[in-house]
Amino acid sequence: MASVKVFLDNEQDTVELGKRLAHVITPPLTLNLSGELGAGKTTLSRGLIQALGHEGAVKSPTYALVEPYELGDIELFHFDLYRLSDPEELEYMGIRDYFTDKSICLVEWPDRGHGLMPVADISIAIKYVGTSREVEITSGSTKGQVLLSKLK
């Protein structure tokens, strides 16, 4: 498992990191995003999703649990598991059906789905450092290691 640390000064830096990620990722891919409320998980997701071709708003799917995006031949699913009260709820929504050879799955609050989520290719942890953010990007698979090397 390799990792890279990045420091972000503001919201635009967070969006730009999402755009950089969009240029190196391909399906199938699972990307986990963790960090405190307001740390920038959805902002990073917005940069990534818009860089892949989505025009319009990118909102956090907190209440719906998942927001689908059709981006050419890529199916992108943006999950927010913050309001998940029991990981078993993921079974009822058919969670495994989302993780296909054509999909990129962005998962905010992945720890809430403990035991039912696949191993992430890339995990991104965002921490507050004063008014800035420290981001640690870690690979969880061989594909993740290749993507990480392209990001550097």
Results as ranks from 00 to 15, higher is better:
38 G>I: 04
59 K>Q: 12
37 L>H: 11
41 K>R: 07
48 L>G: 04
66 V>S: 13
46 R>N: 05
52 L>C: 06
40 G>F: 08
35 G>F: 05
51 A>V: 07
61 P>T: 09
43 T>E: 06
38 G>F: 01
46 R>V: 02
34 S>I: 13
52 L>D: 05
65 L>I: 15
40 G>V: 08
54 H>L: 02
47 G>M: 05
43 T>K: 01
48 L>W: 00
54 H>A: 00
38 G>N: 05
52 L>E: 05
37 L>F: 12
64 A>F: 12
65 L>G: 11
62 T>E: 03
50 Q>V: 01
40 G>Y: 03
43 T>C: 10
66 V>P: 09
60 S>G: 12
68 P>I: 05
58 V>K: 11
38 G>H: 11
59 K>A: 15
34 S>V: 15
41 K>E: 05
57 A>K: 06
65 L>K: 09
49 I>S: 02
64 A>C: 14
60 S>I: 14
38 G>A: 11
56 G>T: 03
55 E>A: 10
65 L>M: 13
69 Y>T: 15
42 T>P: 06
48 L>Q: 05
47 G>S: 11
69 Y>Q: 15
51 A>L: 04
57 A>I: 12
43 T>P: 02
56 G>W: 00
36 E>Q: 12
56 G>P: 04
61 P>C: 14
44 L>K: 10
62 T>A: 03
57 A>L: 13
65 L>V: 15
65 L>T: 13
61 P>G: 11
50 Q>A: 03
46 R>K: 15
57 A>P: 10
66 V>R: 08
51 A>R: 05
54 H>Q: 11
50 Q>W: 04
58 V>G: 09
53 G>C: 06
41 K>Y: 06
67 E>L: 11
60 S>W: 08
48 L>C: 07
63 Y>Q: 13
49 I>R: 00
56 G>F: 07
61 P>Q: 11
44 L>A: 08
42 T>S: 09
43 T>G: 06
41 K>T: 08
49 I>Y: 00
41 K>I: 07
60 S>Q: 13
55 E>P: 03
63 Y>W: 05
66 V>Y: 06
68 P>C: 10
37 L>G: 11
60 S>A: 11
60 S>V: 09
53 G>V: 01
49 I>E: 03
45 S>F: 00
56 G>C: 04
45 S>K: 03
34 S>K: 15
51 A>E: 14
43 T>S: 09
38 G>D: 09
50 Q>G: 04
68 P>W: 04
53 G>K: 01
50 Q>D: 09
55 E>W: 09
67 E>Y: 12
61 P>Y: 13
